[in-house]
Write a protein that binds this DNA or RNA. Structure first.
Lengths: 350, 350
DNA sequence: CTGAAAGCGCTTACAG
DNA sequence: CTGAAAGCGCTTACAG
């Protein structure tokens, strides 16, 4: 191993500049009181050597790495291959990374740190963002126990008030979609949720049940594994539409892929979408935009939500006041062919 | 500060178990030779205390954090707000994160570590992925100098053979698009690239020039700032289509937003797309799919490319052999309305 | 089979 | 104005 193979440390700089490590550290960080010409010399030597403080060593000493982590709960239900239809999370992550950089932080994408085989590195961050916590989320419990500051996006369904969170307005959003389906002509509306016990599934279900009660409609709910994707949606269409009695004329599928599959299945069975059956999706995705007919979907504004979450977490880390009453950005309903009947002039959203 | 406010360290475990730190470390990591009942006891105490080794301290000691970083060059040209049209990068990042997790690593999204104000943390990874390096990329130079292993996705245009890279087949892709435009009826094809000096812009330009030479067509090239987005594309349409002589009847815009703006600008000027003018985009994005008419775009397969890049980097880190001759996945051309003339039956791609 | 000691590369009171 | 020493939480030869 030749000498130039290793990156220079503070010792190399100190030796070459003829001062102590302390002085190098102080000079480079503008701390303590160091003579002007000493500072100058240390800087020059550091430059010559290409010295850059080791972020890990500094992190160990200062307990501040300059890294925030992001745990996207629903991503774990999605197995290996990256499917179409997870656009929300990709956009969320990308936007969070940019927001973190604006504050001088890097963003680390992690898997569940509470899971046995999890990379050790998943706990090596100054703070953590948890998107869509699951019921009684062990990751939140772990982070709380380890005293790692965090912000959840969406509340833990079983502990809504225990932890700092950006509360998603899932119940209100559910009303938005169901109202739209009814106004577009549906009388009997089914809900298809995922099986994952995250806040999104739980709160959408709760919203649906409340809406159904208010409209004197008996709930018609099916759950479907997220990983089943488009194919699962197809089977579900066969299941729900085959029954002679209690057949829905409107369906709200939370995931874009289920909705896409449901439409395909309905068409196979001879249904005309939207004339015989209205379908909406709870998550805007490539598949809902490009399928035929295109599918009305809820745009949950991942980009804006991510930025709000990052800003809140960093305020928390840096000891600033955080306004926890601020909600996530208002969702928008993208109205498309799957709920637009011929002759029914639906007003465009404002 | 109460005692239970801090997370337990190896010292706490050692004390409570009545052994040394060495023994705790060895017992928990299965190293050395430790008595069975000692291992048992140490494990139990560690559990009780909720002890989890500090990843930063371990990283310092072992020079291995379990983190790989990702620098997406073109993202930096895109300023603050996350625009529509950067789908490629978001999908790339999300997919890379999943691939990293499969190997027990976390993925950190970073900004240019060679830039003065960069977060220190951007150098705190075991290895780095650089997507679309720029000319003579200072980040590659820095990583090389710091002996941080890295893999580029797309070669440095000025140093194509100097560093390990997944070579993108941008020149071949450019031929694919240009051939399609010609087969669809275009005779005079302009190229609109970004101003960013990354490998993608450089190689697409080179491909265009070669194609033009082979087809005896005088090159007609414009560059347009990536940040100008849709609006920039609009202006460019006015500029290129206003000139009485040498007006193109086909345009290849590398970015989806430029293409979208170009189509809008052309329509304002009274052009019919695709009848009077064919337009294609070099990057598949939400805007190209949802604009009217929808725009033919190149799908560069970000998901598959990211996985290949992560696998290669981790092989490199873990000292395994890497086949650098493997290319990125073959791009697909999504043919849409903007290049499909009425009466021209274009065969669907296989 | 176990532990004292050194050390990873830094920063931070504190003494001079 | 500067530096010796301690310490962040671990791991790793090495001695016993």
């Amino acid at each position: 191993m030749s000498i130039d193979a290793a990156r220079p440390t503070i010792n190399d700089v100190a030796e070459r500049a003829g001062v102590s490590r302390t002085t190098v550290s102080n000079a480079l960080n503008g701390k303590g009181t160091i003579g002007a010409e000493t500072i100058e010399r240390v800087r020059r030597v550091a430059d010559e050597l290409g010295y850059e403080p080791n972020a890990v060593a500094r992190g160990l000493r200062q307990s501040k790495l300059g890294v925030i982590s992001l745990l996207i709960r629903p991503l774990e239900s999605l197995d290996t291959a990256m499917p179409e239809g997870v656009d929300y999370f990709l956009r969320f992550a990308g936007s969070a990374a940019l927001a973190a950089m604006d504050h001088g932080y890097s963003l680390m994408l992690i898997s569940d740190p509470a899971k046995p085989g999890a990379p050790r590195s998943s706990l090596a961050a100054d703070g953590c963002l948890v998107e869509s916590p699951i019921r009684n989320d062990p990751a939140l419990t772990l982070l709380d126990r380890k005293r790692i500051p965090f912000v959840a996006i969406g509340v833990d369904p079983d502990r809504p008030d225990d932890f700092p969170a950006i509360s998603q307005q899932t119940e209100r959003d559910t009303f938005l979609v169901l109202d739209h389906l009814r106004e577009s002509g549906a009388q009997r509306i089914a809900l298809v949720t995922g099986t994952d016990e995250n806040s999104w599934n739980a709160l959408a279900r709760r919203g649906y049940e409340r809406w159904a009660a208010e409209h004197d409609m008996a709930p018609l709910i099916r759950t479907l594994d997220e990983t089943s994707g488009v194919e699962g949606g197809r089977s579900m269409a066969h299941e729900l539409l085959a029954e002679a009695s209690d057949r829905p004329d409107g369906v709200y599928c939370l995931t874009g892929r289920h909705a896409t599959g449901f439409v395909a299945g309905a068409i196979e069975l001879g249904y005309d979408v939207p004339e015989d059956l209205l379908v909406a999706a709870g998550s805007d995705a490539v598949v809902t935009r490009t399928s035929t007919p295109s599918i009305t979907s809820l745009d949950m504004r991942p980009v804006e939500t991510a930025r709000l979450a990052v800003d809140s977490l960093i305020s928390l880390l840096e000891g600033e006041a955080v306004d926890w009453s601020s909600k996530d950005p208002t969702s928008l309903l993208a109205i498309r062919d799957s709920t637009t009947r011929r002759g029914t002039a639906t007003a465009a959203p404002a």
